[in-house]
């Protein structure tokens, strides 16, 4: 396969679509910005794509709860097409609001899906009670099954910007399954190691969870924004280093991984 095609799904209130498209293009993929209405009219078009990205934003104002109304719309309108898409082994990434959408659809984390559990987690209001924008370190646990993060360094530096990012698993069983399955992809961390506390963990997420994948490793959802750190000048402190370091522009690697995997 030559060109990897990415669909960046938009709707009312999506606002990170252009930079997400740029990240995929910089990673070597084609990226189309498609409004949900267009896709709902031509549902079969989804099958033309290898990667589905649900970008950040405030879909439908995050009214009721973040991502909820969009999740409901996708569940009602695209259920079959999405199952088909996944059955084909295609990839999905949900960033920030996109992560919220995937969780509220029940696509993530899916740790105990076989046992018939649908909604296994939520992303709720930050402990601080408000929207916060800050750069955070994410660490990868020793072992994960995610195809999007292969070969990434142990720690990466990316911004978060959200009000509802506190990851809460439904119960201890779900959390345990996530750990056991290697579905925890990123944890908020201190650069030096150790438990981050606030503000290193910016929202109070249980077990410092910042991103998870499904049991196949092909659906990734994360609150931080790798698409906002794909080139070194976006790093808040590139001026403090005399040269480019591996840390700078690190977010691009996630998109490259996805594109590489999709290419097969």
């Amino acid at each position: 396969m030559n060109k990897v095609k990415t669909i960046i799904l938009r709707t009312a209130g999506t606002n990170c679509d252009r930079e997400t498209a740029y990240a995929f293009r910089a990673a070597g993929a084609e990226a189309d910005l498609v409004h949900i209405n267009t896709l709902l009219k031509q549902k079969a078009a989804l099958a033309e794509y290898h990667i589905l990205a649900i970008p950040g934003g405030f879909t439908y104002g995050d009214d009721v709860a973040s991502g909820k109304v969009f999740a409901n719309e996708l569940k009602a309108g695209l259920k079959e097409q999405l199952s088909g898409f996944l059955a084909e082994g295609r990839l999905i990434i949900g960033i920030c609001n996109g992560f919220q959408v995937l969780v509220k659809m029940g696509l993530l984390p899916g740790a105990k899906k076989r046992q018939g559990c649908k909604i296994e987690a939520t992303l709720s209001l930050n402990d601080s009670g408000r929207f916060e924008d800050r750069w955070v370190y994410l660490k990868r646990p020793g072992r994960d099954i995610c195809v999007w993060t292969r070969g990434l360094p142990e720690a990466i530096y990316v911004p978060v910007a959200h009000a509802e990012g506190k990851f809460i698993p439904k119960d201890a069983g779900v959390l345990e399954a996530l750990r056991k399955n290697g579905q925890i992809v990123f944890r908020y961390a201190r650069k030096e190691g150790g438990s981050p506390g606030y503000p290193g963990n910016p929202n109070g997420s249980v077990d410092d969870i910042a991103g998870v994948c499904d049991p196949t490793g092909r659906i990734l959802g994360l609150m931080p924004h790798p698409e906002r750190h794909v080139t070194y000048v976006q790093h808040p402190n590139w001026r403090r280093f005399g040269r480019k370091t591996e840390e700078m522009g690190i977010g691009l690697r996630i998109f490259e991984n996805g594109v590489k995997f999709a290419r097969g």
């Binding site: 252009r18 408000r130 750069w135 910007a161 906002r228």
Partner: peptide, 22 residues
């Protein structure tokens, strides 16, 4: 300042909070 999104659109290259601890 933290309550505003300074990073959306990916264009911010000198941010409102700077320095070793941002």
């Amino acid at each position: 300042i933290r309550q505003y999104d300074h990073e959306v659109q990916g264009g911010s290259v000198l941010k409102p909070l700077v320095g070793v601890n941002n």
